[in-house]
Design a protein around this nucleic acid. Structure first.
Lengths: 119, 119
DNA sequence: TTGATGCATCGATGATTGTCGATGCATCGA
DNA sequence: TCGATGCATCGACAATCATCGATGCATCAA
C-alpha cells in the first residue's frame, strides 16, 4: 500500500470522483463525511428550508417549527452540516444565521455525476 | 400536515432537489436513504472498485482484499448498496456479480447539482 | 439592572451501525 | 457422491447517532 506525497493527496482530493478510479482511503473518508451529513431526512429538509428562504439564510428559530423537532436537536443537526462544510454559521446579535456554502453541494454532485462516466 | 396523492408523490419524487423548494418528508427520506448508503468510506471505495473493473462488475471475492475487511462485512455493505438502488446483484453460478445501476449516481448528483441553482 | 430571548452544550437514552466469527446454503469439480 | 468454494445470514458487541429536557451563556429591551 504505497503512500503518495501530501501534494499529490491534495491534488487527488480536489477532484476525486466515485467512478473515476479507485478512491484513496483519505478521500473516501472526506467524501463519506459529507454524504453522511446528507444521509438524514431532517438535515435534507433543513437544507431545503434554508435554500428556500428569500435571502438564502435562516436562523434556528426559522427551522424548528417546519421540521417539528426540538430546538436542541435542530441546533445539533446544523452543527453537523457546518462541520461537513455544507453550511456556514454567522452570529448576528442574538441570532445565528445559517446559509449554504456556495458550490459545496455542486462539488459533491460532481463527485457523483462523473465526467468520469467517460472513463 | 396535508398529504398529497400518490401520483403527485411520484411526480415530485422523480425530480426533487435539495435546493429546489422545501422537500417533502417522504422524498427527503428517499434521498437520505441513498446518501446514507454513500456515507461510509468503505462503501464509496467498493463503488469505485466496481467502477474500475474492466467489465464494470465485480464479485465479493474481488472486493474483500482491496478494502481489507472480512467477507461478511463486505457482503453486508453490498447489500446496503443494493437496497439503496445504487448497485444490482446478479448470481451466476457460485459467484454474485455486482454492478452500478446506470444513472443512479448521476440522478443523485442531479439532486444536489441543481439546475435549481437557477432558482 | 433585570427579565426575556435565541442558541449551544450537557447528560441521558433508545436505536442504528460497522464489524467480526460461526454457520448454513448453493454450486461446481472430481 | 463428496469435498471445496463463494456468498449470505445469524448472533454478538462496541461505537455512533438522533433525540430530548435541563441548563448555561450572550444579547437585547425596558
Amino acid at each position: 500500500m504505497p503512500d503518495s506525497s501530501p501534494l499529490l493527496d491534495g491534488a487527488t482530493a480536489c477532484c476525486a470522483t466515485v467512478t473515476g478510479g479507485v478512491l484513496e482511503v483519505t478521500e473516501a473518508e472526506r467524501l463519506a463525511q459529507m454524504f453522511k451529513a446528507l444521509g438524514d431526512p431532517t438535515r435534507l429538509r433543513l437544507l431545503s428550508l434554508i435554500a428556500a428562504q428569500p435571502d438564502g439564510e435562516a436562523c434556528i428559530c426559522d427551522l424548528v417549527d417546519p421540521v417539528g423537532l426540538s430546538q436542541p436537536t435542530v441546533s445539533h443537526h446544523m452543527k453537523q452540516l457546518v462541520e461537513a462544510g455544507i453550511v456556514t454559521r454567522e452570529q448576528r446579535g442574538r441570532w445565528a444565521f445559517y446559509r449554504l456554502v456556495d458550490g459545496s453541494l455542486a462539488t459533491l454532485g460532481a463527485a457523483l455525476h462523473p465526467a468520469s462516466l467517460s472513463v
